[in-house]
């Protein structure tokens, strides 16, 4: 088999891109998990060491990355449930496209208030607000 196939294996469309996004979010979340177990392991070193590394989680830029993490996990979870429905529900393949739009819809509905609560402190600290 040629190393560089002519054209693509897939026709594209939502089926392919939802799958590509599932892989990318999966890899990203998995690498974060490695780091997260390592930083949590500092509770065995000393309270100071742990609090120091957790302080970085509270900074504005990392706080924004946390919103990205939650968004990635939420997509991976919702689309994962869609994949399970396609695999095990008799009508799953027929409704896979509608289920993808449901995934996107639920994602937006959860992420809008979620982002608000996750970023509330950072926005107040950066732009000031009445105490």
């Amino acid at each position: 088999m040629a190393a560089t196939p002519v054209g693509t294996l897939y026709a594209g469309g939502q089926g392919m891109w939802s799958w590509v996004a599932q892989r990318i979010t999966g890899i990203a979340v998995f690498f974060f998990l490695y780091v997260h177990v390592l930083d949590t392991a500092l509770v065995r070193v000393s309270p100071e060491a742990y609090d120091l590394v957790i302080a970085t989680y509270k900074t504005p830029i990392v706080n924004l990355l946390e919103v990205g993490l939650v968004g990635a996990v939420l997509y991976h979870a919702l689309n994962g449930l869609r994949v399970i429905a396609v695999d095990f529900w008799a009508k799953g393949p027929r409704y896979q496209k509608q289920m993808l739009w449901t995934v996107v819809g639920v994602w937006v509905i959860v992420m809008v208030p979620g982002t608000y609560y996750m970023m509330k402190h950072t926005v107040e600290a950066l732009f000031g607000s009445t105490p």
């Binding site: 949590t40 509770v43 309270p47 742990y50 609090d51 957790i54 989680y57 509270k58 706080n63 946390e66 993490l69 939650v70 996990v73 979620g114 609560y117 996750m118 509330k120 402190h121």
Partner: peptide, 19 residues
């Protein structure tokens, strides 16, 4: 994620004592 990042002040309240 809901407990750690959103509920009750989110990540801002996490420290050794919380764990």
């Amino acid at each position: 994620l809901f407990i750690m990042n959103i509920l009750d002040g989110g990540v801002q309240r996490i420290n050794f004592a919380f764990v």
